[in-house]
Amino acid sequence: MAVFYILLLFVIIAAIIAVETKNLLSAVICVGAIGFGGSLMFLFLRAPDIAITQIVVEVMGLIILIRATISRDLTFISGDREFFGTVVSVVIVFVIFLAGIHVFDTLPDFGTAVFTQVPDTASQTYIEEGLERTGAANLVAAVILDFRAYDTLGEATVLFTAIIGAMVILRGKSRKLLEDPD
């Protein structure tokens, strides 16, 4: 499990660099480091489905992010907001952190799944009866496409809306320029 902690620290350091660096391209590459480190962590947490999805989504997302930043002439950014506002924001974020960290005392220790602490949870049913009630060997596929298929239908709707929104935002006023080659 030591590798898991090392990966978690690696991800946090990559996040700090991604937030604090002045170069936008470096920040985007650090986002890639977070994503691939996160994919390895999902593999350690016994979630191979999530690991595969995360790694391919990360590649696509990196291409989109680099596409948005690389051709802009302004890859170096100037300083942050004024000093007073930054200090106040940092203090507020730190106070939220200190207040919120006590929530995790109510959870069981890491390595003890929450669904084992409560009798008759849905997850236990999925593990015990998923194979015979749906016939799918991959229990995650059984959950997303049979037991909770409404969730997937909603996901398809959200994805459809997001894509249509992106295309509408990107659509320009002039359609004559489409014939203009490059």
């Binding site: 016994r46 979630a47 995360q54 669904f115 997850s123 593990i127 995650v140 997001a162």
Partner: peptide
């Protein structure tokens, strides 16, 4: 076996995050 339910929810969440990133 680990819990399959959060994995299923996170699977949809990751793909939605790619769509919202594009937006």
């Amino acid at each position: 076996s680990v819990d399959p339910l959060p994995q299923a929810l996170v699977l949809t969440s990751i793909v939605i995050s790619l769509g919202s990133l594009a937006l």
